[in-house]
């Protein structure tokens, strides 16, 4: 399983006064089972990029290959692609529409053509994996709290059993507790179901603790692509484009300047702690 992007470019409102290039020659390979963070500030092309991965937007030029097949081929079934590449939009709770939570989660599987029983089973499983109390399953989704609504919306995508899960700023507008819960949830999902997960965010802190690989987007192109340790070594360049490395990166660089031989490639508080302790041992 892999998604390959070959020199993808996308232009909004081509040929008008509002024409703007959202993506410029983006080439990427997304491997099976990877946990990837996509980072960039507002307007860097992150959201446009992920909408290409399940065929919602068609590239102005370039090609996209899912499992070795060109998704722009005439007879390619885009609806099937969308069930395999699950996309959770920003503020997904705004898409809830059914009378009960359970029915809303069933919407995806039903569109896949599954029987009512099977869809129900999938919905049940998905709702349980996002940790929603069972007593709420038959309530109206509009009565839930913001964080709960978001879980329901994520469950709505999970119920289709995608092979790749993409989340666009899943933590936007949540408090720190809600944020950690969602990120833990996604991380568990990746571990247990062995799905490839793409996490879009503009917060380095969010991403650094969880992902194996970071793709930094700037002005429509890929700026850096590597492990968190590699990417955060460029913290000065990241700052120049309006992003920042996690706070531990700054701390470690500061310590090194003061003469402590610490490892500047660490990205989490835990690793930083070990690195510092090692010196004093």
């Amino acid at each position: 399983m892999s998604i390959i992007l070959d020199k993808v470019s996308y232009v909004y409102s081509e040929g008008t006064a509002y024409e703007s290039w959202a993506l410029k020659n983006v080439s990427l390979k997304i491997e099976d089972g990877q946990f990837i963070g996509i980072i960039g500030h507002t307007g860097s092309g992150k959201s446009t990029l992920i909408q290409h991965l399940n065929g919602l937007l068609k590239a102005s030029s370039g090609g996209i290959y899912f499992n070795g097949r060109d998704i722009y081929e005439e007879d390619y079934d885009l609806r099937e692609l969308r069930t395999k590449v699950g996309l959770v939009f920003q503020y997904p709770e705004h898409q809830l529409f059914e009378t009960t939570i359970f029915d809303d989660v069933c919407f995806g599987p039903m569109n896949q053509g599954l029987s009512k029983n099977e869809a129900g089973l999938r919905a049940f499983e998905a709702l349980r994996s996002v940790g929603l109390p069972e007593s709420l399953y038959y309530q109206s989704p509009f009565d839930l709290s913001g964080g709960q609504k978001r879980r329901v919306a994520i469950a709505g995508v999970l119920a289709m059993k995608p092979e790749v899960l993409i989340l666009d700023e899943p933590t936007a507008g949540l408090d720190p507790k809600g944020r950690d819960e969602i990120l833990d949830l996604v991380s568990n999902m990746h571990r247990e179901r062995e799905m490839a997960v793409l996490l879009v965010s503009h917060s380095m802190e969010d991403v650094a603790n969880y992902v194996q690989r970071i793709i930094v987007m700037n002005d429509g192109s890929v700026m850096y692509d590597g492990t968190p340790g590699e990417v955060f070594l460029h913290y000065k360049e990241l700052e120049a484009v309006g992003l920042a490395a996690p706070q531990v990166t700054y701390l470690m660089h500061e310590l090194k300047e003061q003469g402590l031989p610490v490892d500047c490639g660490v990205t989490t508080v835990e690793e930083a702690r070990n690195s510092i302790l090692k010196i004093f041992r």
């Binding site: 909408q51 399940n54 919602l56 609806r79 969308r82 069930t83 699950g86 996309l87 959770v88 939009f89 997904p92 705004h94 898409q95 919407f107 995806g108 569109n111 896949q112 709505g156 995508v157 289709m160």
Partner: peptide
């Protein structure tokens, strides 16, 4: 546009 895309991502036609 966004809601339409979001529902299409869930297989709506």
């Amino acid at each position: 546009d966004i809601i339409m895309k979001a529902q299409m991502a869930r297989g709506a036609d």
